[in-house]
Design a protein around this nucleic acid. Structure first.
Lengths: 139, 139
DNA sequence: ATTGACCTGCAACTTTGTTGCAAAAGTTAT
DNA sequence: ATAACTTTTGCAACAAAGTTGCAGGTCAAT
């Protein structure tokens, strides 16, 4: 478990530090995506606000986590799959945000549909964010 | 033209004020979506920062404009189509952001594809944001 | 024109994110 | 294990983004 996390860091040429291990743990424990604020709340006493910002930035650059576009424009982060390499994200999955509990899921097995663009527009990436009610809140 | 704008405001039970008219003009003049910062830049000397924030909020509530999710999580706003009523947005169109010039387009004629959600997940809304190169920047 | 409701600007504040630098930790080679 | 080197952290200070309360001004309806 702890070695998994250490290996992930080493694989990305990052030194293994307490804050990085701790923040990665948060992601592994959580079902879904996390905001800076939530992480700060969970590890807040241990580490400085600035450290969390910088750690998240580093993780995004290295392809360990990715950001998720949201309609309310808060910044959410989630773990990338193995395939993501430095500087090249290809998290081609649909994101789902529950209107009830606010959890953001990465739906890895739902494929991104292709959209037909007007003439002259060249496609590079498609982000799909679905909102609704998740399995846990559905009664 | 000016009467169009006034009517739009009246139809939404909003009093017709200079700042509201001016901000709506900005949207009509522009091809695409606008950020708070861009609007402030265009009308900045005339109106207070706070007024712009509150005007945009009001417009979103009334269904005159809508927010657009972006991968860099900056807040962008664009005009809604006639169909949007108070508190109920249904801007079911694809958004396109040009990586080159940064312009955000509402592609009204591109239909939102339907996605197959896992069991237990209930769909309410789908947001699709495509990035790439737009017709103007494509050489 | 007067009244009442609504809108605006100002000031102060909170929240969010960034930068520079010195101290502390991690890493590598001996 | 230790020394030397590199990287990361915490602090402080700052910058940017967004919010709130209130007094004064504007708008709409009579």
């Amino acid at each position: 478990m702890t070695t998994d996390i250490s290996n992930l860091l080493k694989r990305n040429q990052l030194s293994v530090t307490n804050s990085r291990k701790r923040i990665l743990e948060c992601f592994h424990k959580s079902d879904g995506a996390l905001t800076h604020a939530v992480i700060e709340q969970q590890v807040g006493e241990e580490f400085d606000r600035v450290t969390i910002y910088r750690t998240l930035q580093t993780f995004v650059e290295k392809g360990i986590i990715h950001t998720i576009p949201t309609t309310d424009n808060s910044v959410k982060y989630a773990l990338c799959k193995e395939a993501c390499s430095e500087g090249h994200h290809h998290d081609n999955h649909v994101h789902f945000i529950c209107d009830d509990c606010g959890t953001t899921y990465c739906l890895d097995h739902v494929t991104i549909p292709s959209v037909q663009l007007p003439n002259g527009f060249k496609h590079k990436q498609t982000d799909v964010v679905v909102s609704g009610v998740c399995e846990k809140c559905d009664n």
